[in-house]
Design a protein around this nucleic acid. Structure first.
Lengths: 344, 344
DNA sequence: TATAGTTACTAAAACGTTTAAGTTAAGTAG
DNA sequence: CTACTTAACTTAAACGTTTTAGTAACTATA
């Protein structure tokens, strides 16, 4: 029971494969109505669907994209993936899904395998640690859109980012306005551009509030919950009235967990704020104040942009920066001591 | 700058494409060592990689699988997906990723599109609501493995499930042993086999403990957090000493949230237990007692099985049932009143 | 009536591989 | 020396499409 091909249809209809092909692809200016009807009927009867492989061989388009994210278990990336998938689906594309585990080697391997499978383009949220030289050497002749994270491949044709600087600035400003004394930045790896930008926002907000920047208050680790849980053990100053600005929600959630175990009161004694606003942040207690990223939208727009580039409607603007929004919840929402106001 | 093909390599090496092909695929019994070396060198130099489309056309294998899950935002399915991806990757397969949003129509569409793209097989966690007749009509001539959820397509060649009956039985037994009086089952849609099995486990556990089954204590809804949040509004009996057995963790988390808002004490007054043991269950407070499913393993083994079937090493046993494990945490862990023991 | 234009097709090449079958030259056995 | 075997290749078809260039039969125009 072999699959039915265009030849079978052609034979049954008594026409050439060229004619059938035209009808299948709706290029029927050239075909009489009677023929169209006849062939369509047979196609339906026989349940014929064209073989995409064969089609792709000649058209050089697979209508297939690659999506690489670092961590499918982080809801932030899951949301990006969902946005990407939805838009791809709407536009008739399929997605090869790859999870790099934040490992650059694995990312390389996936990129190569995607190229072999002839994807039309790649959407990449890169692994945290980069290697400019190696990346630049890889010969990529299909378009890549980078999302969230930075990368240096030659093929990169555009990017979707968020305004990490602004997001961090707002967050830190909020902590200060709530009267927290010492503002600690618990950062993810500084190899990533988002982390760097957030650090910049953190510093600016402090300076603008007339505070000093103290390296003791900048802690660098990974974007994982584990890291958050371990932090307080490493601090040798009093946590009284400290405001923690965390690199992402997972870190913040880990931190809160360990703070609660030590019986600190949040937000009364300690304030915690995260980044991403994954949906878990709403569920933990105290619920987490967080800088919301439009993650779904980031995925959606990335695919949008990628496909625009594929159809080389030469986009003038291949870089897009989306806005964050501070979502205030319990973890910082103490009856405001409003130190800030008093100071003024 | 066109992509380099096998012909280019053949010409450069002064051999036929057949020879190059053999070397690429390591079928070199037939080729002299010198030729192998020479060709390999040129391949490396020119950075040649074979075109999978062309290869697939003749071999009729794409080394590509489809993965359909209902909800990428549910960590349970995310874990399944991760397990699937890891195993597929290990075995040299790529995965087309599809999210059905628990919508059967969307599932149909995806299946068709996967078939058009010539995937070798499909791994399916089906949408909750099924339609036997429609499913049976779809002409699928590639193998499908169903995981977790049931489905009725003709192509289904195996399944990976968990012992939902046993899991529910253990959970309910635990609630009873903790002395909760009224045991309420908050179920997901009863269209799914897992739900049905859990209901069976719930009933059996009650009967074995000498309790009566009361339909008032069986509430059916969806597998979403929203549903969990709304439940207590619908109940007209006292919640004092009630043990809730929830269809999944998301429901349980929603339920706990609303209970806390009404100032019920968990686990002192009310016990709550979930199903799946997604990692969030550890993070909320009180942390959630849950029936753990080996979700990663389910994905991993599904792909394992699917690929075995593809290589038709005619597996005698195409159905596998994995075990659950009850993880006891705060949400049921009250100083045991041990009613049970007293009764005896 | 001859010419040009239009309509509705078809023939065949091309895409980049794999593979069954064939070929050639050298080596070996009798 | 002949016949057979083996090693190391090559030839060419096949996979299922799309697409360019061509053709035949009409129709309209001058």
């Amino acid at each position: 029971m072999l699959k039915i091909t265009i030849k079978d249809i052609a034979k049954l209809a008594g026409v050439s494969t060229a004619t059938v092909s035209k009808i299948v692809n709706n290029k029927i200016d050239d075909v009489s109505d009677t023929t169209v009807d006849k062939v369509r009927k047979i196609i339906k009867e026989k349940n014929y669907t064209p073989n995409y492989l064969a089609r792709s061989m000649v058209t050089k388009k697979t209508k297939t994209l690659g999506l690489i994210i670092p961590d499918i278990r982080n809801p932030f990336f899951t949301d990006i993936a969902k946005g990407a998938e939805d838009r791809a689906n709407e536009l008739g594309y399929s997605i090869f899904f790859c999870n790099s585990d934040d490992d650059l080697d694995k990312e390389f391997t996936y990129i190569n395998s995607l190229i072999e499978k002839q994807v039309d383009g790649i959407m990449l949220a890169g692994a945290a640690k980069r290697d400019k030289d190696r990346e630049r050497k890889i010969n990529i002749n299909i378009p890549i859109i980078s999302v969230d994270r930075n990368a240096y491949y030659k093929g990169i044709k555009g990017s979707i980012e968020i305004d990490n600087y602004e997001g961090a600035y707002e967050g830190v400003k909020h902590l200060i306005s709530k009267g927290y004394e010492r503002i600690v930045f618990v950062s993810g790896p500084l190899d990533t551009k988002p982390s760097k930008e957030r650090l910049r926002g953190y510093k600016e907000a402090l300076i603008d509030a007339g505070r000093k920047i103290d390296n003791e208050n900048i802690i660098v680790g990974t974007y994982e919950r584990n890291f958050g849980e371990k932090i307080i053990e490493t601090l040798d100053y009093s946590l009284e009235n400290v405001g923690f600005f965390c690199g992402n929600d997972l870190i913040a959630i880990g931190l809160i967990k360990s703070l609660k175990e030590k019986n600190y009161k949040i937000p009364e004694e300690i304030g915690v704020i995260g980044f991403d606003d994954i949906y878990i942040s709403l569920l933990i207690s105290p619920s987490l104040t967080s800088v919301r990223q439009p993650s779904y939208k980031m995925g959606y727009e990335s695919i949008e942009l990628l496909i625009k580039i594929l159809n080389n409607s030469n986009e003038e603007k291949n870089k897009k920066t989306l806005k964050t929004r501070l979502i205030i919840r319990e973890s910082t929402n103490r009856i405001s001591l409003d130190k800030n106001k008093k100071d003024k």
